[in-house]
Amino acid sequence: MIESKGHPNRLGLWGWFGGGRWGVERYLYTLHRLTGLGLLTYFLLHILVTSSRALGQASWEWAMGTVSGPLFKFGEYLVFVAFAFHAINGIRLGINELGFGVGPPIEPVYPYRTSLDFQRPLVVGVLLLAAIIVVMGTLNFWVLD
């Protein structure tokens, strides 16, 4: 590896959120990572809260009391929305990352048609499905509850 003496110019996290003019798959990529991190945080908290049972009845009741407020209920709702998106979009990524739905290699003739155009119907389907699940979950969370 040649050591560079240049000025660092790596975009870092700005490469996820901004840094240029991006398309819809880029935002889905970023959202997938963010929701993944959110779910991971939830799982850690979940383990922490439920493990309080090991310390006895009193600490369990204290932990459950702490997480039963409206703020935590809203947090749980966000976890549900993140889960709906992450799971359904994950299926799309699984399909694409196994080389399905991206189209065969083609002769690049301008204006170029990329694999993104091939898999766009899948993106639309995924977003619709995630939206339906979120609407159903929202009713369940806030209206039918």
Binding site: G20, W22, G23, E25, R26, L28, Y29, T30, H32, R33, L93, N96, E97, L98, G99, V102, G103, P105, P108, V109, Y110, Y112, T114, S115, L116
Partner: peptide, 23 residues
């Protein structure tokens, strides 16, 4: 690579590296 596809979107030669990587 998690198929953000930006590489294929900007490629000036229509190479579609995102497709190559998934294949």
């Amino acid at each position: 690579c998690h198929y953000a596809g930006e590489c294929s979107r900007v490629c000036p030669k229509g190479v579609d590296p995102a497709k190559a990587i998934q294949l």
